[in-house]
Structures are given as C-alpha cells and as structure tokens.
Nucleic acid binder design. Structure first.
Lengths: 259, 259
DNA sequence: CGAGGGGTTGACGTTGTTCAATGAGCGTGG
DNA sequence: CCACGCTCATTGAACAACGTCAACCCCTCG
C-alpha cells in the first residue's frame, strides 16, 4: 500500500514524505476518482505547499492569466462574477476536496473570479505539471476533464434552481447539494455539517436579497426541516427536505466511475 | 490546401470526398479553434452522415448512456432540464457550428437532455473516434476540452443573468449572446439574424413566463433597440443594447486561441 | 465604550405570475 | 372553398413573490 505508513506528524509516505494536508486531499479525491496508486503519487508530488487566504480575499481575479490551479484543503471558496453595481453572483461553491479552477488550464484566462468565503487553506498545481501528468497518462486527462465537466453539470443545476424553483425550494436545494457533497468527503455526520456562509453570501448564490434569505431560513426552521445555528446546519427531515427541493444528486456524479 | 478543390455538388476534398454539410461545419469551427489541416481532415473523416430531427424531438434524453456526440449543422437545439411539473429550464442554446453534447464523452451519462427547438440537421461523432483522435493528438484533447469549458463559461454567465439581471436587461443579454455567436459563424448580417425561438422557449431560457417575455419584448421594441418579426431579429442600437444588458463577450472566448 | 458586521422583523413598493379573453396565421378535412 | 382546431402572440386585471427602506438586536473586537 502506498499510503500505509503513518508519519509521526501525520504525513503519509512511500519513500517520499508529502505534506499531510496534501496527502489527505489526495486520499479524499481518490474516493471519487479512480486513481491508481502510482497516479496518486505522481499527482501528490506535484502539488505544492499550501497557502492561507483570508475571508473575501481573491484566489484568482477575472481576466487574469494564471499558470496554476488551486485545490481546497480547508474552508469555503466560490466562483463569482461581479456586476456593474458592485454586487456579485456566486456561480458555484467550493468545499474542501475540490479541484477549484482547473478550468483555468484549458481556458488560460478565466471569465470569473475565485474568492475565499471563509479563511481558506489552498494547495497549488502548476499548469506545466498538469501538462506533464497528462502527457504521461491519457487516463489522467480523462479524469481531469471529467472533473471539470461535473462543475458544468453543477452550473446547469444552478441555472435550473435559480430559474425554475422559488423561495423555500431554492434555498433547500442548495443546502441539499452542500450536504451531499460534504458527506462524500467525510465532512457531514448524520445530517450535521459546517455551513459557514452568511445570509448575504447565501443570497449571492441564489439571486435573493439577504432579507429574503433570512425569512426563508426561518420558514425552513419553523417547518422543522432543519436547524441552522452558529454556522452549523442540522437536517432533521432529510427525505422531506430533498422532496421539497426536488433534489436528485445524480448531477453531482458522486459515485465512483469504473473507467 | 486540403479543402481547395470544389466538387460539383459542393463537397470539398483531398483524395477523399466529405459530405458538404460536414465540410462546411469543419470549416466553420476552424474559424474558432486552431486546427491544422491534417487535424481538420482527421476530424472530418470521422464525422458520420447527417440526420434530421423534428422540432421538440430529443437528441439525447437525461440519464441515457450514449456513445456518440452531436454536431449541429443547421437549426437550433437546447440543453434542458425538466422540472417535476413538466415545465423545463433551458440551460444553453446551441446554434449551427456548435459541438453539442461533447459533455457526454467524459461524463458518459448526461445529467440533462438535448432537444431540438426547431427542425435540426445533426451530424455525429462516435466516442470511440473521439478517443482515437485524442490518442493520436494530445492537442486535439486540449481543443475539445477547451470547447466544453466554453460551455461551462456560458453556463456561468447564464447563472449571473438569471440571478442578477432583471426584465429588459435579462432578455437583452440573451439576444446579445446569440447575436455575437451567430456573427462568428457567419449567420448574422449587420445586426440582423435568425432567431427562431417562440416566446415560450425564450421564457424557458430566462426563467420568465411567456406573458412576461411578450411584455419585455414589446418594451425593447418601443424603446427602439430592435425589431423582432417572423423569427428574425434586427438590432438597431447595438451599443445601447449591450450597455442595457451589461453584455461583455469575453466569456464566449470567440477570439482564436494561439495554442 | 463605541464601531461594525451579522441577524431579525415590519411596512411598503416593484417585479413578475396567473387567469382569462381575443386575434392572427396555418394546416387539415369536409 | 370554408370551417375547424391548433399554436403563437397580445393585452388586461388581480394576485403573489421578492426587494427596499428602516429600525433594532446581538455579538465581537479594538
């Protein structure tokens, strides 16, 4: 086994010692994508040391030409597009275990910004390293391409959510999505998970005003679907909440692919 | 030159004769992506004969496992997600020259349906052929990946449009997008272009009711921005319309890439 | 102790939906 | 040929969803 020996400081190794955060990250994404051990090691050794970003700090700015992709180790980030009046639309939430902004590899210049919503621990992977990984291993190209296409699928679901669902169903759907994604990476426990967004940030995801978000959350609480206190959500009636939201997790492609 | 000799029936050839529709399609996408002539030929010879779909007929149904990708030769199609009540949200419009549903290659099973909005002429490319193209030519993989990432960028713009813009600006933005995309593939002439959608279909793109679309279009007409008669739009005040919409075409990545 | 960010609540205005009725165009069958 | 049924577009009126403004709370941090 590649990652069987546990270092005293938490790092996993096989001859080589990786940053414990990075080892954990790679182990996490291996749950979703079928990396071989050799692939996982080749990936790990190219991921560079972690950086911490403050809340509301930009990881990438729109129109910027960048040469690396970011991976979230800890914290919440978002893809966001800024409006002319200074407000913004969040188009996707990124949680620990996400390859954020792999999009910048084929696109070269991003059409949107990446911003930390909480303080974030980030690791980086240079585009030249991605090219080398892909050249050595066409299967890696498929995995990375697949990963970005899941982001596109999430975008489509958000379009449907914002365009077709109203009020309680819309906010419930977002909560169901984050719960399902958190669960897969081991960040949800029996319906309880961290949800560190403010009501304003929630509104920026959903196209609602902060005040409307407040009222909708109160209704979900009063209806007994969930509690949401101190940045922690507990879902009490999961099936009913998914039903209210019209939530079907297929679009997240969470089950491991065979290929 | 590969495509210099013109056949009597309109096909272009170099030893080999391609379907004239396919030759035209490949010539069109070569305006956007930097294919070499050899690449263009390898692609052309793998694209199979065209099929015609009726209005509102499905090219692909959600959850279906398919083994080919579709290319639009003529007509309008859409990515759509169906709601529980039978209504639907359109998440992207596809016009002639688009690789539609290349997403199904890495995803294998689609999270959404592809439906013809008008009668459509479609060509197909088998997934096995895509794999062969990519294996022979890693640059082709980048081009195809890039193409799907532009779709993701359009999705993000739509999220912003539906989530942040209201009324006239929202519908104006969609019109600006289709105009810009039509122009690139030679389907717009000095602000005039085919726009064969019904008001109902427009509403399904924008998250508006058909009745509201009707009223908004009337306002745009009354304000002198455009005329829209018999499925043809003519934009009279392009700069003002883009300004109203907050439209910036960067997200379409229309300019030819160097790589 | 004061300032600032986040949450809560009420009153009121705007945007967009629903229901309903009408007309124009088009293909089909008598 | 016209009558019909259909789809699409148009318009009005009542209603619901959501935003804005304003006031107030609590908490944290300097």
């Amino acid at each position: 086994m590649v990652y069987s020996e546990q270092h005293s400081d938490g790092a996993l190794l096989k001859g080589r010692t990786f940053d414990p955060d990075i080892a954990k990250f790679v182990a996490t994404i291996r749950k979703r994508f079928s990396f071989s051990e050799a692939e996982a090691e080749r990936l790990s050794e190219r991921i560079t040391l972690t950086t911490v970003y403050d809340r509301e700090e930009f990881l990438v700015r729109e129109d910027e030409r960048i040469h690396f992709s970011s991976l979230i180790i800890e914290g919440y980030a978002a893809r966001a597009k800024y409006n002319e009046d200074g407000s913004r639309q969040i188009t996707q939430l990124q949680i620990p275990g996400d390859f954020v902004d792999l999009h910048s590899y084929p696109l070269e210049v991003l059409d949107h910004s990446i911003v930390a919503l909480t303080s974030c621990t980030i690791a980086k992977l240079h585009h030249t390293d991605i090219s080398e990984l892909i050249d050595h291993d066409p299967r890696m190209a498929r995995i990375l391409w697949f990963s970005t296409m899941v982001d596109a699928a999430m975008h489509r679901e958000w379009i449907q959510n914002i365009g077709s669902r109203e009020g309680k169903a819309r906010i419930a759907h977002l909560i169901c999505e984050i719960h399902a994604r958190s669960e897969v990476v081991g960040l949800a426990d029996n319906g309880t998970f961290d949800f560190p967004l403010t009501q304003t940030q929630l509104g920026e995801c959903l196209g609602f005003s902060q005040i409307h978000v407040n009222r909708l959350l109160r209704q979900l609480r009063e209806d007994g679907y969930l509690t949401f206190k101190e940045k922690i959500i507990t879902i009490h009636k999961r099936d009913e909440l998914c039903d209210l939201a019209g939530f079907d997790p297929n679009y997240l492609y969470l089950t491991k692919r065979s290929s």
